[in-house]
Design a protein around this nucleic acid. Sequence first.
DNA 1: TATGAATGAGAATTCATTCAT
DNA 2: TATGAATGAATTCTCATTCAT
Lengths: 192, 192, 192, 192
Amino acid sequence: MENKLSKREAIINAAIKVFSTKGYHSTRMEEIAILAEVGKGTIYEYFASKLDLFQKMLEESVKVYFTEVASLDDENLPFAEKLLLLLAGHIDFCKEHKELTRIVFWDTEIIDEELKEWSNQMRKEKEDYMTEIIKTAINKGDIKPVNPRILTYIISGVLGSLWAPITLDNWEVNTEDLAQEITDIVIRGIGL
Amino acid sequence: MENKLSKREAIINAAIKVFSTKGYHSTRMEEIAILAEVGKGTIYEYFASKLDLFQKMLEESVKVYFTEVASLDDENLPFAEKLLLLLAGHIDFCKEHKELTRIVFWDTEIIDEELKEWSNQMRKEKEDYMTEIIKTAINKGDIKPVNPRILTYIISGVLGSLWAPITLDNWEVNTEDLAQEITDIVIRGIGL
Amino acid sequence: MENKLSKREAIINAAIKVFSTKGYHSTRMEEIAILAEVGKGTIYEYFASKLDLFQKMLEESVKVYFTEVASLDDENLPFAEKLLLLLAGHIDFCKEHKELTRIVFWDTEIIDEELKEWSNQMRKEKEDYMTEIIKTAINKGDIKPVNPRILTYIISGVLGSLWAPITLDNWEVNTEDLAQEITDIVIRGIGL
Amino acid sequence: MENKLSKREAIINAAIKVFSTKGYHSTRMEEIAILAEVGKGTIYEYFASKLDLFQKMLEESVKVYFTEVASLDDENLPFAEKLLLLLAGHIDFCKEHKELTRIVFWDTEIIDEELKEWSNQMRKEKEDYMTEIIKTAINKGDIKPVNPRILTYIISGVLGSLWAPITLDNWEVNTEDLAQEITDIVIRGIGL
DNA sequence: TATGAATGAGAATTCATTCAT
DNA sequence: TATGAATGAATTCTCATTCAT
């Protein structure tokens, strides 16, 4: 039992590494098998197909993201604090799990209609979740009564655009400072 | 002459449609040929390989984007106006060229090392271009002395995140209003 | 008419060059067209297909060989003289038409069943022709009563084996000397 | 182990048959697969490409030839005896391995620059080996002081020219007699 | 349960040939 | 008659998946 679990984990971890580095189509099952130190056939004991492995890996990655990046709705904090926490969590996650972030936030390779749907659905859920928080903040008189949807796009946009410089350019940045600066701009604006 | 041009164009246009819908790897050359109403072999009269076709299509798409979305540096406008123009141009482009936008803004599929490099380079150029405009605005006392790089990520983030709702969800939105609302938030902030 | 003939010749000459250098399968019709300075379609005005062009070229090459290498049966010479003439003619031909020799003497690439038959037939004719000459020489008491067929293989063998060093290694040899030395060995033997 | 070897061997044997019958270019990988009773993909488990399979087959065929046709330099025999042995070995080989002989002795189809080089190199080695034996024989006073290179061409010429009648015409000949007759002619000459 | 040799469907690409001009 | 742009049949090779061990 324990063995089985650890094999499954080894495969998922290998999958994250290879898929996020090479993309879905350029990844060979054999490469994952080698990296996971299992036989090629063993992968099929745990996953039905390459697509299934990719999906399972995606799901688990998203789970890890949501576990690590602080959940915001259960905290009774002012919006600025929540935003700061979200940004800091996201930036740390980017720095620690460079490969994973690509998959969770950026991968748009079109593989399968169903997966596309799932991916799109996940995006909408994230947006809805964020929009709800914003609405609450507006209702509580925490922030101006801006269009919640538009603010959602601004925030998720920043989260997305940070991945490239941190991962690809190896931008070494202090998490707290960056989160604070972004929050400041969003809260106070750039106008004089 | 006209014939030759229109054949090449037909292929490029078909390529934009199919590549942006299915992604690089799931696209079959035959499908492009059928959509372009040419023989499979004809594609190879104009493009050396599948990768070459993809690259050429990418380059032309980027060119179209930069031509259509108003160039900002030659205008002697206040930053808020420039931002408004950029957003309006981008939103209109998204609405008119849904497939193209996906390619210009979102495709990060890993296909080829050289292409990855080119894609990354393009991103950096866009960022540098935006950063320069911001620096000028700060120097002119147009906006607060924020970190130009961070503001760049906020702006390019919004541009990127608008693609999905407009294209995938068919968000029917008034360009002027959306551009204005985003600009307002960025200039004035969301804080009370 | 004259034009047509010279175009046909240009194509045949180009075909000899390209086919003998690259072999049948690695030769592209376009290459022949370019070398012959005609359009690709023009070749098909004179030859039915690639195979037809190859066959016609082969036939003409063989004709040239037999025209240039002295015909032996009409000469009333002793066998040693005939052999000397044959060898000298063959060596000169090898030196002057390196590409052609390859085709006439060495090319065995299997292209087509019919062509294989034709090629084999041609070989047998050459052998029979040689065997007849040998028989006559034996009857006239010119040479020992050896097995004519075996002597044929020895002589055609030498002719064949000279092509490689002359063409591939650029063996610069004096025709008369080489022909004489070979004749001496064949006539007198190598034994003491 | 045994299985693996026999699978590789089955492919090589099928390759010999098909390549020698149809030539390199007219041979389809699938045909080899069918004859070897393996799947198309299996060939690629053992050989990197069609060219690689051809090369490996060539190398092994040459090895078989040199193993079966008696090695001459370790024998302290008079030259006539050596020649007799060589001829007898060669004739037997031709009779037993008709397809193989074609490949070892006659195939000059132009496939690949590197292969051409290899093939030419092999020819030169064979010539050098023969030339050395001849030089030794001359030094030992075994035979007349003829030009060793020219004698080499005569001998390798006969070897080559025997292939066609034996293989293509199914010439049924007694090995000993043929070898003896050729040797006699070479040693004693045909002159009276 | 674990394996990896064997498989064959599927895709990119080539190039002889055609045919409208 | 001469042309070369257009074509698609044909071929090699890849790699996810299977299954006997």
